[in-house]
């Protein structure tokens, strides 16, 4: 039986087919093949969410896992990220949680935290 996957590596969303022999087709690039292989063994997702800050004008700042983490760890990761509070000015890419759940993946800011200058 042929299994169909929708590749989520990029917004193109290729329909990738895997037959019984494990032959992969329908992907428009190499990453699609890797995605489907992973999806069959250890599906992973990038988690994007927010963290609290102490700054009134920026109550939340967005963060992401720098790499995809195992799908099964998403909820645990959310629990940890939900406890983070940013208390100082920080730049995009700065780490807010290192090596989350021992995945080897850092959680980083995706928004610069800069208090507005009063001109």
């Amino acid at each position: 039986m042929t299994k169909e996957f929708i590749c989520i590596v990029c917004p193109r969303g290729c329909h990738v087919l895997v037959d019984d022999a494990g032959n992969i087709s329908g992907n428009q690039c190499k990453r699609g093949e890797t995605y489907v292989k992973n999806e069959m063994t250890n599906p992973k997702r990038v988690v994007t969410t927010t963290v609290r800050t102490v700054f009134e004008e920026i109550p939340r700042a967005s963060v992401k896992t720098l790499e995809a983490i195992p799908k099964g760890l998403i909820y645990q990761a959310m629990d940890l990220i939900n406890q983070v509070v940013i208390t100082k000015e920080m730049k995009i890419g700065e780490v807010v949680i290192e090596n989350i759940l021992n995945t080897g993946v850092n959680v980083v800011l995706t928004k610069e935290i800069k208090r507005k200058e009063v001109k």
């Binding site: 990029c10 917004p11 990038v46 994007t48 969410t49 927010t50 967005s62 992401k64 995706t110 928004k111």
Partner: peptide
């Protein structure tokens, strides 16, 4: 704040 932006322009995946 989700990812998926920039693959065409920067060949890298960014959040909004």
């Amino acid at each position: 704040i989700h990812n998926g932006f920039g693959l065409e322009v920067f060949k890298e995946e960014y959040t909004g």
